[in-house]
C-alpha cells in the first residue's frame, strides 16, 4: 500500500506538471495585456477626439470594411515610450491582427500628439494600393496641415477619408487629373460590392474555424513570430464587437511629424 500511495503521489505530480505545461500558453496570452486594448476601430488613448468624431470615424471604417473587407483602425497614443513610431505601428498591427488573415489587408493609422509624430502602417496585402509614396502624400498633404493648425480632429478625419479613398479607388492627390474609366472597368465595379460581400462572408466563416484552432495552438505568438505564425488577432476579445481578423504587417507605410 505504501508503494501504491507513493505512485499515486507521483501520478498527481505528473498531472500537475502537465497542467502547468498546458497553462503556459494561457500565461503568455496574459502577457499580451501590455498592448493597449483594442476597444474598437478607434482607440483614442491620448484622448484627442470628441465622442462624436469617434463615432463618425468608426462608422466610416465599419462601412469601409463591409465594402472591401479592409480593416482600418485609428490609434492615438499619449506616449511612445521612447520607441520609434514604426515599432509601434508594427507591434499594434501584428499584435491586434488587423486585417483579414488570408489577405493581410489592415491599416493602422497611428497618432502620437505629444511626440508630434504620426504613421500610416500598411499591411502586406495593401502595400500595392496604399504605397509608401501615397501614404507619405496623405500625411504631408491631407493630415499635417490640419495638425499644424492645431485641429487634430480635422486632420484625423481627413486622413481617414484619404486612406479609405485610396483603398476605395476614389482618392485623387491634388496634382493628379482623374482619368476616364473604361466600360468594362465600370461594369466590374458595379459588381464589386457583391463580390466583396461574398468574400467577406467566406472569410468570416473561415476565420471562425481558424480561430477556434488557433486559440488552442499558439495564440500567444505575436509580433516577433508574426512573420510566419502571427495570426494572433484571435486571442483578443473586444468590447465594441470589433476584433482583428489576423492580418499581418511587414513594415510598409509612411511616417511623418508636424
Amino acid at each position: 500500500m505504501v508503494v501504491n500511495n507513493l505512485w499515486h503521489f507521483r501520478f498527481i505530480l505528473w498531472l500537475l506538471v502537465l497542467l502547468a505545461f498546458l497553462c503556459s500558453g494561457q500565461i503568455a496570452v496574459a502577457q499580451d495585456a501590455s498592448l493597449p486594448a483594442l476597444t474598437g476601430r478607434v482607440v483614442d488613448r491620448a484622448d484627442i477626439l470628441s465622442s462624436a468624431a469617434e463615432a463618425t470615424i468608426a462608422a466610416k471604417l465599419e462601412a469601409h470594411e463591409k465594402a472591401t473587407t479592409n480593416q482600418i483602425v485609428v490609434v492615438t497614443l499619449p506616449d511612445l515610450m521612447g520607441r520609434p513610431i514604426e515599432d509601434w505601428g508594427l507591434m499594434l498591427g501584428r499584435g491586434w491582427g488587423i486585417g483579414q488573415a488570408e489577405k493581410d489587408n489592415g491599416v493602422v493609422f497611428l497618432i502620437a500628439p505629444n511626440e508630434r509624430e504620426l504613421r500610416i502602417e500598411v499591411g502586406y496585402g495593401l502595400e500595392g494600393e496604399l504605397t509608401d509614396a501615397l501614404a507619405d502624400q496623405i500625411i504631408r498633404g491631407d493630415i499635417v496641415p490640419h495638425f499644424k493648425a492645431g485641429d487634430m480632429e480635422a486632420g484625423i478625419l481627413a486622413g481617414v477619408d484619404a486612406i479609405t479613398g485610396v483603398l476605395g479607388g476614389t482618392y485623387r492627390p491634388a496634382a493628379e487629373v482623374p482619368d476616364g474609366q473604361d466600360r468594362i472597368g465600370s461594369i466590374i465595379e458595379e459588381f464589386v460590392p457583391f463580390i466583396a460581400m461574398g468574400i467577406w462572408l467566406l472569410a468570416l466563416i473561415g476565420i471562425s474555424v481558424r480561430r477556434r484552432w488557433n486559440r488552442k495552438k499558439n495564440a500567444y505568438e505575436w509580433y516577433w513570430r508574426a512573420g510566419s505564425g502571427g495570426r494572433s488577432g484571435s486571442s483578443f476579445r473586444s468590447g465594441g464587437g470589433f476584433s482583428g481578423g489576423g492580418g499581418s504587417f511587414g513594415g510598409g507605410g509612411a511616417s511623418g511629424r508636424w
Binding site: E86, A135, D136, W224, G251, G252
Partner: peptide, 15 residues
C-alpha cells in the same frame, strides 16, 4: 518616402 519605407521593411524582414 519610398526609401524610408523600404529601409523600415528591410528592418522588419531582418527581424
Amino acid at each position: 518616402a519610398q526609401l524610408e519605407g523600404t529601409e523600415n521593411r528591410i528592418a522588419v524582414a531582418r527581424r
